[in-house]
Simulated assay, not measured.
Amino acid sequence: MSQNQLDWDKLRVFSVVADLKSFTAAAKKLGESTPTVSRKIDDLERKLNCELLLRTHRGVELTEAGRVVEAHVHAITEKANSIWYDVCALDIEGTGRIRMAAGDGVASHWLTRTIPEFLDTHPGIELELKISDEEVNLLSGDADMTIAWEQPRHRDLLSQRLGVLHYMFFASPEYLAQHGEPESLFDLQGHTCLLHSNYQNQIDAWSTRAHDLKKALSYSVITNSGTVLREVCARGGGIAVLPSYVAELDPERLVPLALPEIAPIRFWLVYTQRMQRLSRGRIVIDWMRKQFSEDVSPWFMDTFVHPAKRSRPDGEQSDQAKSARSS
Score class of each variant (00 low, 15 high):
311 S>Y: 07
16 V>G: 01
163 G>C: 05
106 V>C: 02
58 R>D: 05
98 I>A: 03
281 G>Y: 02
32 E>G: 13
45 E>W: 08
253 R>W: 07
299 W>C: 01
251 P>S: 00
298 P>V: 01
42 D>Q: 14
36 T>Y: 15
253 R>P: 08
104 D>H: 06
233 C>R: 00
48 L>C: 10
140 S>E: 12
218 S>A: 12
72 H>V: 15
278 L>P: 02
282 R>W: 03
323 S>E: 11
170 F>A: 00
12 R>N: 14
90 L>C: 12
181 E>Y: 07
249 L>M: 10
74 H>R: 15
50 C>P: 08
52 L>C: 07
231 E>M: 09
179 H>Q: 15
79 K>L: 14
285 I>N: 06
245 Y>V: 02
154 H>W: 12
149 W>T: 09
162 L>M: 08
56 T>P: 01
132 S>V: 08
264 P>I: 02
53 L>G: 04
179 H>C: 13
279 S>Y: 04
202 Q>A: 12
106 V>N: 00
136 V>W: 05
4 N>R: 14
89 A>D: 13
118 F>D: 03
8 W>A: 14
163 G>T: 03
294 E>L: 02
273 Q>P: 07
313 P>E: 12
13 V>I: 15
9 D>L: 15
119 L>G: 11
312 R>K: 12
26 A>R: 06
105 G>T: 00
316 E>M: 11
188 L>T: 03
41 I>L: 13
49 N>L: 15
201 N>K: 15
179 H>D: 11
13 V>F: 13
323 S>T: 12
159 S>P: 00
230 R>A: 08
121 T>K: 15
48 L>G: 08
164 V>P: 03
2 S>G: 13
126 E>G: 07
195 L>S: 01
212 D>R: 15
132 S>E: 13
170 F>N: 03
102 A>G: 07
103 G>E: 04
182 P>R: 04
55 R>W: 05
320 Q>S: 11
271 Y>P: 01
200 Q>C: 09
74 H>E: 13
289 R>P: 06
5 Q>H: 13
298 P>A: 03
211 H>Y: 14
310 R>K: 09
262 I>E: 01
224 N>W: 10
85 Y>N: 12
139 L>T: 14
215 K>C: 10
105 G>A: 00
42 D>E: 12
69 V>T: 10
236 G>D: 06
317 Q>V: 11
308 A>H: 07
31 G>Y: 07
185 L>Y: 04
102 A>N: 01
122 H>Y: 10
96 G>Q: 04
244 S>A: 09
306 H>Q: 05
86 D>Y: 10
19 D>C: 12
231 E>Y: 11
59 G>W: 06
288 M>V: 05
97 R>K: 14
244 S>C: 09
98 I>P: 02
29 K>R: 13
8 W>I: 09
151 Q>I: 09
148 A>E: 03
318 S>G: 06
71 A>W: 09
174 E>Q: 13
255 V>W: 00
315 G>R: 01
